[in-house]
């Protein structure tokens, strides 16, 4: 159980990293290892030979542009923040730093965690929420290891 829980946490950690910011050279190096390529292929994710063979600096530049276009703008983009998307009965949604942002921030901070000042997103950024679940899974694994359930 212990191992499985911490491993589930790793999946959330991985996804959090994907959404948190542009791919860095270190991260790209890890993603391009044969082991990870195998895992992704098993999941049906084929990134194409190009991804594994192109010069890293070129690829990083291209991925950075794509990340910006997807999550930051300009033009049509997908805001990675909960308060923009989640419909609330009280109508307080569809905007940045909305009611859900406050709720998420309060909830996460109530557990003893804090936001890193280097992080530029809002508190309800999907990366923050995924990372929060990662930390919950890790805490659960620790409690199980300590026989403290």
């Amino acid at each position: 159980m212990e191992e499985k829980n911490s491993q589930v946490g790793s999946v959330y950690g991985f996804l959090a990293r994907i959404f948190a910011r542009e791919v860095t050279s270190d991260f790209l190096e890890d993603l391009r290892t044969p082991r990870f390529r195998g895992v992704l292929e098993e999941l049906g994710v084929d990134l194409g030979d190009d991804f594994y063979s192109r010069p890293a600096n070129e690829l990083l530049e291209e991925l950075a542009v794509e990340y910006t276009g997807l999550f930051i703008g300009p033009g049509s983009f997908i805001s990675p923040h909960e308060s923009v998307h989640r419909v609330r009965e009280d109508g307080d949604y569809g905007k940045l730093w909305g009611a859900d942002t406050v709720a998420v921030k309060k909830f996460i901070e109530a557990t003893g965690l804090s936001y890193q000042s280097s992080f530029g997103g809002m508190p309800d950024h999907i990366a923050a929420e995924l990372e929060f679940v990662q930390k919950l899974e890790e805490r659960l694994a620790q409690a199980q290891a300590d026989d403290d359930m």
């Binding site: 790793s10 190096e29 890890d30 003893g112």
Partner: peptide
């Protein structure tokens, strides 16, 4: 998950991005 764990364990790929401290 196992592959992701390796990345986390290596301490170079997936580090904490957003949240500091522990629960």
């Amino acid at each position: 998950a196992a592959a992701s764990s390796v990345l986390i364990g290596a301490g170079k790929g997936i580090t904490s991005n957003v949240l500091a401290g522990s629960i």
